[in-house]
Design a binder for these strands. Structure first.
Lengths: 195, 195, 195, 195
DNA sequence: GACTAAACGAGACGGTACGTCATGTCTTGGG
DNA sequence: CCCAAGACATGACGTACCGTCTCGTTTAGTC
């Protein structure tokens, strides 16, 4: 239990949101390089001190800004068919990555190489929840006998999600719906048993 | 036809190599963030001018340093079986990425998000040659009837290579030999026809 | 007629004294530079608001703190001999300036250059009363025929007090008793008629 | 003999002078408080780095700026009469202190209380040379029998110069020619023997 | 063997952003 | 209405690199 703070001026919610929104806009518009704390402060009409008070690093701020804009927007579906669930989720994810959020995520992924704390934050807040759902769903599919024999959940997830993220590395575009469907056809053929 | 330069002191090969080696070492040791031109110059015992004379940007220098260390080390194999060729090449690539070169490449991939010229340089010098070989090999396999029906070469390559690069994005480790084999089993099952 | 304030919590005398004493201690210990409002508030266990409510500027607070510590400690003597009176008063003043109060005064004199309100406050509360007494005493001495011919009171006071304060300007120490006596010998020889 | 530097781009004299002049102007116009390194850099069209490269502190820069504007303008006279020498030098000094240079010096004297290095710099570069000349001249006068008996050089100098500097402490004006003459009459009467 | 001309090391230059600090104002809940 | 606590916008601090520039010094080939 954290000791609840009772004295002093409370944190300004207005300022917090202005900062997160300015940060997200800068991230989208100018990439992680142009994402300077001073620029965020100026754009948000906030002081640098306020930013440093609440976010320990550029990394934390970037991740928070991303999630402030993304929220719980992504569904983690659950139908009868594991293949349908993964296809739906990945298709939706691809759509998100093709938009502003994708630009922001790509920008952060760049910064993540230079800043391990950003990599870790992204891993624990973005990747890990999806991964947990994926492993669980894949395991249930295995128990239901829906996977081809010898398919390990980890490897299957790598094959399903890897092709989606890779273009972000080399500055390419996230694949469009047709390309996603095409690679999912292949990946699913390798993973799921056909009745 | 550019007029051939005949007079003046010729470029110092010693200096060029010292710079490339210092750059590579810094890239590996401190990531793209710690990869400062001033630091490279100091480590190489060179002047900043010399670096800026021969490399237009950090990006170019980084890429050159990477290839100076990597050379033509990667084989693009050619046996009777497309599947065997891809598995061999990807397994070898995974081994390279797990070493120093992988660290350097990961560092550059980070910088590439902030610096489009680096992304482009990496794309054209690293990714594209491999991709060309991959497309050609995949096309020949298709013509030989080795692919499952409906498999497009682009999508197949995405499924083969994507899982390898993705961990670089989130700060993870490049998969080890067993993990590579496991995901290749799945990917190949989706791509190649079984006799 | 000011309307007497009847409602609300009355001003805390405890807090007022804690602030003045903390201010004086900081002034002595760390000079005008280290004399930060935040530091005073922290040392006094007070809020910054309380300080700003009651003192309009650092200058006012410093002067108040100085006089809170000094009070009416300095006698303005009155014997038969003007020379004796001035020597006594200046000797006593020198002793005071060599102690904590001198350190505080010196600190404020520094701030006074940057802050005219402080200079003015010091002038009107510290210098002017002494000066008034000095002019009056000197005038009476002139009327009594105790001054050398042509000696103007203002100039005489400048010669008497100037050597005392000057070392504060250049970071030197206030002169000790012997040095004070030595310069007073000279100054008095120039001012007072010898019977 | 300092080792002469032979490599690298030589220091820009243009930049050095622009900085010193901007610093002096700011010192005169806005006091030591408004004398910010950033403001100097902006006004001089220089980078902050350049200032920090050549001046270790605000203090050093201020003192250098003052002397750059003052140069060897002050004569240290030498005639037959010690009294005439001192009167000439002090009268000239008073004139200087009443002008821009006086404003700058006053500003620095304020800063000196907060910054001991400034006090020291001023002491060693401004006060000490004058003091050395004063002690030497006074000693020669003593040997020539020109001083009243019992007059110590240090005390005599304090009486001569103290009244000139003291007004700087309390924000007052440096005395005008008439006031200087009046106090010098008194001081000299106490110091010099009359034939 | 002197001359020419480009490359070299060194490092100073004007800048930008960093993360920290103190200022003076404000906004709470509690006394 | 006062108080403490502390968040807020502002703006200077001193540092680290950026990419450009100007030096004096090699180090070839050409006359």
């Amino acid at each position: 239990m954290t000791k609840s703070r009772v004295t002093g001026r409370p944190r300004s919610e207005t300022s917090r949101e202005a900062i997160l929104e300015a940060a997200f806009r800068l991230l989208v518009a100018r990439g992680y390089a142009g994402f300077a704390i001073e620029a965020v402060a100026a754009a948000a009409g906030a002081g640098k001190t306020t930013i440093y008070r609440w976010w320990r690093s550029k990394a934390e701020l970037a991740v928070d800004a991303f999630f402030h804009a993304t929220q719980a927007e992504l569904r983690l579906p659950e139908t009868g068919s594991a293949e349908a669930d993964f296809r739906a989720q990945i298709t939706e994810l691809a759509a998100l990555l093709r938009g502003e959020r994708g630009r922001a995520l790509a920008a952060m992924l760049g910064g993540a190489r230079a800043d391990p704390t950003l990599a870790q934050a992204l891993g624990s807040r973005w990747l890990e929840p999806r991964r947990r759902w994926g492993v669980a769903r894949m395991t249930r599919a295995a128990e239901a006998g829906d996977l081809r024999p010898g398919v390990e959940p980890d490897a299957a997830l790598a094959v399903l999600y890897g092709p989606l993220y890779t273009p972000l590395l080399f500055g390419g575009e996230v694949p469009g719906p047709a390309a996603v469907a095409a690679y999912l056809d292949i990946a699913c053929a390798g993973i799921f048993a056909r009745s």
